[in-house]
């Protein structure tokens, strides 16, 4: 029993150390490390995609493949539910 407690305490200490250092090393809020992509999208969204809503421009234009996967997930969910709850003819 004592061995297990020691192992638990040791792993908790290691995780806490990494967590605290990781939290301290995070960049401050609103000041991203790599801002070039954000700034590019903010500057060029209106001219490139013609949309005032930058979020929609990112979701449907710049990251269209992500939305395609999302739509595929929804399609798979609907197909699965209809398959499970389909009406079976009773003989």
């Amino acid at each position: 029993m004592e061995g297990r407690m020691l192992v638990a305490a040791g792993s908790l200490t290691i995780v806490s150390i990494f967590l605290i250092f990781g939290a301290l090393l995070i960049h401050p809020f609103g000041v991203p490390n790599a801002y070039k992509m954000d700034q590019y999208i903010i500057d060029h969204t209106q001219n490139e995609s013609g949309a005032n809503n930058g979020v929609t421009a990112v979701v449907f234009d710049y990251r269209g493949f992500d939305t395609l996967g999302e739509a595929t997930v929804l399609f798979t969910a609907v197909a699965g539910v209809i398959l499970v709850f389909r009406r079976v003819k009773k003989e």
Partner: peptide, 9 residues
């Protein structure tokens, strides 16, 4: 405005 975005929406 928006190009293909409204159609996709």
């Amino acid at each position: 405005t928006g190009g293909t975005l409204p159609l996709m929406n």
